[in-house]
Amino acid sequence: MAELITLEEVKLHCRIDGDDENALINGYIVAALEICQKHIGRRFDDGLEFNPALKVGCLLLVGHWYEHREIAAEKTSELPFSTSSLWNYYREPGVY
């Protein structure tokens, strides 16, 4: 799978100037792409088009995780509304 979201795009989106958290941010990118595919019920390497709505949803999710990385005790099983509202349109019927 080609690089769908670059580190530079996320750093611009999150307004991050330094390089000391690059590994953390790259992990968030990989995780957001995986969660996106699981949420929708299709894979990018199996015909799911990585369109602007999916990309913005991933950027928002990475930004959310980055800003709230210290929270461990709060309910975290649900996607932020902004992300799910972008992705739900593409969700396969019957995916839970």
Rank of each mutant, 00 (worst) to 15 (best):
L79H: 04
T76Y: 01
N88P: 02
D17Y: 14
G63Y: 06
E3T: 12
Y96S: 04
C58P: 05
A23C: 09
D45A: 10
K75Y: 11
A53E: 04
E70P: 00
T83A: 15
C36M: 08
S82G: 05
L12C: 12
D19M: 06
H68F: 10
E21W: 11
H13F: 15
C14V: 15
V10P: 00
R91C: 05
W65D: 02
L48H: 03
S82D: 15
D46I: 13
H64D: 15
I29Y: 05
I5F: 03
R15E: 15
G47F: 08
L54W: 00
I35H: 11
L54F: 05
V62Q: 03
A72Y: 10
T76A: 13
G63P: 02
I40P: 01
V95A: 01
G94P: 10
E70V: 09
E92Q: 12
C14G: 08
G63C: 12
D46S: 13
Y28I: 03
V30F: 07
Q37C: 02
L7E: 01
N26M: 08
T83H: 05
V62T: 12
D17P: 02
V56T: 15
D45E: 15
A23I: 13
L60V: 14
E8W: 07
K38A: 05
P80M: 12
L33E: 14
E92Y: 05
T6G: 03
K75S: 13
R69F: 10
N26C: 07
I40L: 06
L48G: 00
M1Q: 08
N51W: 01
